[in-house]
């Protein structure tokens, strides 16, 4: 996603290594995605569903 647009930054974080950060974002299961500190996406989703949620696009 980051490669598609220069406004996007994507971090892959190893949760057990950065426990403080994992606690901050209440990572109790993986994968868990946080977008702009506010949007939380639990688990792995199909591509389009994931991007729609990440970008806060309305449901189809």
């Amino acid at each position: 996603m980051a490669a598609a647009n220069e406004n996007i930054t994507a971090d892959a974080i190893e949760a057990t290594e950065f426990m403080e950060l994992s606690r901050k974002y209440r990572v109790t299961g993986v994968p868990k995605t946080i977008v702009n500190e506010t949007i939380e996406i639990m688990g792995g989703l199909p591509e389009k569903m994931f991007v729609r949620q990440a970008l806060e696009m309305p449901e189809e």
Binding site: M1, A2, A3, A4, N5, N7, I8, T9, A10, D11, A12, I13, E14, A15, T16, L21, S22, Y25, V27, V30, P31, K32, T33, I34, V35, N36, E37, E47, K48, V51, R52, A54, L55, M57
Partner: peptide, 29 residues
């Protein structure tokens, strides 16, 4: 390769993003 393996529609949505967007994905090994 500069090739992004995403659906053309997804690419269109992503290219329209006009504000800083920080994605953090947590996983385990």
């Amino acid at each position: 390769t500069a090739v992004i393996d995403l659906d053309p529609e997804t690419m269109k949505w992503l290219q329209a993003v006009d504000k800083p967007t920080h994605i953090q994905v947590f996983s385990t090994p």
